[in-house]
Design a protein around this nucleic acid. Structure first.
Lengths: 360, 360
DNA sequence: ACATTCTTCGTGTGCGCACACTTTTTATGT
DNA sequence: ACATAAAAAGTGTGCGCACACGAAGAATGT
C-alpha cells in the first residue's frame, strides 16, 4: 500500500504539498506539481477512501428529488427503500443523503421541490425528470453551479447528466410482446390499454408500446393489438363497460397488454369468468400486481427492479464523489420476467431490508 | 452519531473499558459490563466500520475454496468475478480475500485444497461443498477452530454454516416445467437428459428434476418426461445417436429438458432441422448457452446469477466480520428467466466489471 | 505486616488523510 | 539595499477506533 507519506518522501516534499496537488488546491509550483503527479501515477497511488472519509466527516451530500408515494400508489416506495439502503451503507463513508418528494402529477409541485434542493447544499443530485420544461430550467442551474446530477428511472435526452439508471423500455415492451404471443394463438388479438397520462408526456410507457408492437411486426408482420383508451382506471364500472364492449366487438381478443403499472386495475374491474379466458401482461411489482400474480390472474409481470435502481444510483454517485469513478452513461438494469413461481425470490433483498429497518 | 467516547462518558468509565466489552476481551466486572451493554443498546451504538478498518489494517482474511475454470468449462468464472469485485470494494476496509481452486471432478483435489486453506490463516471461509465426506471433515476442523464458514452455490444440510447463498433448485426446476409446458401442447412429451455425474452426488441437479416433474404432476397429474441417460455429452456422435433413437421411439417428444448447464451440448450435437422442432430448456449463462439463446435454438434459460452469488457472499461475510451483522441462514437469489431479448441486460454488472479490470 | 498475584480499569499512540495554520523562499517595488 | 507582498512549502491536530501498556485496587499467601 502506497501512502501520501511515501509519495512525499519520494518527491522530497512534505505531505501537505502532495495533498495540495491531490485536491487541486493550488499554491504549488509547476515543476514540483509535475514531479509529484508523475510519482503518483508511477506508483499507482490513489487516496484511501476509508481514511479520507474518517478525516472529512460528511463532506458529501447527495440530494434526491423523487415522487412521493402512498399505500395505494406505492410505485415509488421501492426505489425509496433502495435509496435508504444505500444511505445506510454509506453513512460512515461521509455521505449524507437528503430526499425531497413531489407530487408526480403536478409540474408545479416538481418545480417547488426542485427549489428546495438548493437549500440542502448538495454535492450531487439524483432526480426523476418527469417534466421537461421544469427539468431544463433546474438542470441549467445545476450546470451553472457545477453540481453533477443523474437521472433515476425516467430518462430524458439532451442533458449533461452523469448517467441514467433504469430500464430499456423499448426492449421491455418487446419482451412483453413475446410473452403475450407465447400463451396465445397466432390469430389472436390483444387489447392494449391506454390511459390519458400515457399519451403525451410519459416516454416510458410509449416506448413500451413501441417495443410491443414491434415484436408482432417482426414476427408476424402485423399489428396485433387494438388500442382501447380508458380515461380513469379507478372507475371500475366504466372500465368494465369499455372492455366488455370491446370484447364483444372483437371476439378474437384473448389477451390484454397494460403498458403501465396498473394491470391489477383491469383484473379487479372484471369478473373472474372473464379474466380466466384472458392472458394479461403488465409491468411492475406493486402490491396489487403481485397479488394478481399469486392468484394466477396475471401470468407474467415485467419488473423494472426499482429497488436496485435506487440502491445502485446512490452507490454510483457515491463512488463518483469519493473515488472519482466515472460510471457509464446509461445503466440498464435487468428486465426481469416474473411469474407466480419466482416472485418470492425476486424481491428478496428489498424484503430483507424492509424487515431490518422496521425492527429498529 | 454516537461514539465510544460518548458511551464511556455516560457509563463513567474509560474508552478502553468500553472497547473491552465491545470485543469481549474480558477483564471487566460483571456489573460495569452490564451497565455498558445497556447504554450501548439504548443509544443504538455500533462500531464505525470506517474508523475500525483504519485502525486495524487488514485484520480480516476471507479464504474462498472453489472449483477452477477454463475457457471450455467456464461455469465458475462468473462467481469468481463476483468475488473479485467484492474484493476490490473491500480492500480498503481491511478485508483480504484469498482464493484457492480445486478440480471439481476430483474429491482428492478438493481435500488437498482444503488443507491449503489453513495456511492463509482465515477469519472466515467461503466454500463450495461439492463432496460430502471431505466437507464433513474439513468443516469439523473449522468448527473446532471457531472459524465461521458459508456455502456458495451448492448447499449441504446438517452443518453449522453461517449461511448458504444460491438458488432454490426445486423451484427453479418447477419454473422450468412451467416454461416447457408453455411452448408445448398438453399431450407432448419431454426428454429429460441425465448424465452420469448428475445421478448421485449433485443435489442441485436432482432437485431441479424433482421440481420439474412436480410441475407436471401438479398441473396435468402425470409424469411428462422420458428420462434419457447419456454418459458423455462431449461425445457428439453418441449423443446424437441416443437422442435420435429416443425421438423415433416416441414421436410425441417435442421438448428437451437439460437440468445441468450443458444444454448447448445437446444443441450442437443435433442438426438444425431436428433442433428447430424442439423446445429446449436449460440452466446457466455459459458462453455456449447464451450463444444458443441468441441464435434462437434455445428459447429459455434459467440463470442462477452466479456473479451476484459471489459478490453478495463476500459482502455478507465482510458485514458479518466488520459489523457483526448476522445474515439470514439461506440467501436465495432471484430465479431469472432469460430470453434472447433480455439477455444483454442481465449480465450487465458482470460485463462492466470485466471491462473495468481488464483496463488496468 | 508485607510481598505477591489477580482483577479491573485508565492512558497513550498510531492507522491515512484533510485542512488550517505557520514558516520559508521568491518576486516585486522603491 | 531594504521592505513588503506573494508564492511555495512545512507543521500540527483531529477524525473514531484497536490495542499495547501500565496503574490502581482487591484478594491471597507467608
Amino acid at each position: 500500500m502506497v501512502r501520501i507519506k511515501d509519495i512525499a518522501k519520494e518527491a522530497k516534499v512534505s505531505e501537505g504539498t502532495v495533498d495540495r496537488v491531490l485536491h487541486n488546491r493550488g499554491g504549488v509550483s509547476k515543476t514540483t506539481e509535475a514531479r509529484i503527479k508523475k510519482i503518483i501515477s508511477d506508483k499507482k497511488f490513489s487516496i484511501n477512501p476509508v481514511a479520507s472519509a474518517l478525516a472529512m466527516k460528511n463532506k458529501y451530500t447527495i440530494t434526491v428529488l423523487m415522487p412521493e408515494f402512498s399505500e395505494e400508489d406505492a410505485f415509488w416506495k421501492s426505489p425509496y427503500l433502495g435509496i435508504l439502503k444505500a444511505t445506510n451503507e454509506l453513512q460512515n463513508l461521509g455521505v449524507t443523503v437528503h430526499i425531497i418528494h413531489f407530487n408526480q402529477y403536478k409540474a408545479q409541485s416538481y418545480e417547488q421541490a426542485s427549489q428546495k434542493v438548493y437549500k440542502t447544499n448538495p454535492t450531487a443530485v439524483l432526480l426523476v425528470p418527469l417534466f421537461r420544461k421544469e427539468t431544463n430550467q433546474f438542470v441549467q442551474e445545476l450546470d451553472k453551479l457545477d453540481i453533477p446530477y443523474a437521472f433515476l428511472n425516467v430518462n430524458m435526452d439532451g442533458f449533461n447528466n452523469l448517467f441514467f439508471i433504469g430500464q430499456d423500455s423499448y426492449t421491455a415492451g418487446y419482451l412483453a410482446g413475446k410473452l403475450s404471443a407465447l400463451s396465445l394463438k397466432p390469430q389472436s388479438k390483444i387489447l392494449l390499454i391506454q390511459t390519458r397520462d400515457n399519451i403525451d408526456n410519459n416516454t416510458t410507457i410509449s416506448k413500451r408500446i413501441e417495443g410491443f408492437t414491434s415484436y408482432f411486426k417482426d414476427v408476424y408482420s402485423k399489428a396485433p393489438s387494438i388500442i382501447l383508451k380508458i380515461e380513469n382506471l379507478d372507475d371500475k364500472k366504466g372500465t368494465e363497460q369499455s372492455i366488455r364492449t370491446q370484447l364483444s366487438n372483437t371476439p378474437a381478443i384473448e389477451g390484454i397488454f397494460v403498458p403501465s403499472s396498473r394491470a391489477s386495475a383491469i383484473v379487479t374491474s372484471l369478473p373472474k369468468t372473464v379474466i380466466e379466458k384472458l392472458s394479461i401482461i403488465g409491468f411492475d411489482t406493486t402490491p396489487q400486481n403481485t397479488q394478481c400474480l399469486k392468484e394466477g390472474t396475471i401470468p407474467f409481470l415485467i419488473s423494472q427492479k426499482t429497488f436496485d435502481q435506487g440502491l445502485e444510483a446512490i452507490r454510483l454517485l457515491a463512488d463518483y464523489l469519493t473515488a472519482k469513478k466515472t460510471p457509464v452513461k446509461k445503466v440498464y438494469l435487468p428486465i426481469d420476467i416474473l411469474t407466480k413461481e419466482n416472485l418470492a425470490y425476486n424481491e428478496g433483498s428489498q424484503y430483507h431490508f424492509e424487515r431490518e429497518v422496521s425492527l429498529s
